[in-house]
């Protein structure tokens, strides 16, 4: 469960203070499927980064699974990112010199998991995302859809409880994007919390809960 109380995040531009997030209160229960929408600059990506512990709020309180996480040390936050959170990015963010299998393996290496176990888990993930044929290919040799499948396999290899996707279909054409969405929604069906940031209304409408943002504030919060 994610609970944000009075979360504020400011940036300084010259002598001006810009509120990327302004007093955000939000609770997302385990297993929810949430889309965050809004125009660019509305603070939706910043919100996602704070939920993913990539960014630190300037004020407010953030509890993840009942535990306050804002005051944790850098090492503990890294551990939470590793074990509880999976990121999926618009531009995939695959390491270009590593093969698909090696990219998927990265979180396991960072988690200090023994090599023998890693092999089995990577194989299972490759199979689950239909990448077995592409295991030894580098990202440059993969299509956009394949790249995002590798990225999703990497995001889920540690079996996180939350998947955070920032415009996951932004660099894909419509049909491939739809396939990727099905993969992500399957993760939600399996019980993972799924939070998607998008400015695509059609995509956002697929979520069971839609949050609309503008100027660092939550404007709408609808369940459908």
């Amino acid at each position: 469960m994610i609970r944000l109380q009075s979360i504020t995040r400011t940036f300084h531009m010259g002598d001006q203070t810009v509120y990327a997030l302004n007093d955000i209160n939000l609770q997302i229960d385990s297993g929810e499927y949430v889309s965050i929408m809004g125009p660019s600059g509305s603070g939706k990506s910043t919100l996602l980064n704070i939920i993913g512990l990539l960014d630190q709020p300037n004020g407010g309180r953030y509890e993840l699974d009942g535990r306050p996480v804002t005051d944790l040390t850098e090492i503990e936050q890294a551990r939470i990112r590793r074990e509880k959170i999976g990121f999926v990015f618009q531009s995939f963010h695959l390491v270009p010199r590593l093969t698909a299998a090696e990219n998927i393996e990265l979180p396991l290496i960072l988690g200090g998991i023994p090599a023998e176990q890693r092999q089995a888990r990577v194989q299972a993930a490759l199979q689950a995302f239909e990448l077995l044929q592409r295991a030894q290919h580098r990202p440059a040799e993969l299509s956009g859809g394949q790249r995002q499948r590798v990225a999703i396999a990497r995001a889920t290899i540690m079996q996180p409880s939350v998947i955070l996707a920032d415009e996951p279909t932004g660099n894909l054409d419509h049909q491939i994007g739809a396939e990727v969405m099905v993969l992500l929604e399957n993760l939600h069906h399996a019980g993972t919390t799924l939070i998607i940031v998008t400015h695509d209304r059609e995509l956002g409408a697929r979520a069971h809960r839609q949050i609309g943002m503008r100027d660092g504030k939550i404007l709408t919060d609808q369940h459908s």
Partner: peptide
């Protein structure tokens, strides 16, 4: 940045 996002300290 990616390594940090997937849990590198």
């Amino acid at each position: 940045g990616l390594l940090k996002a997937i849990g590198a300290t």
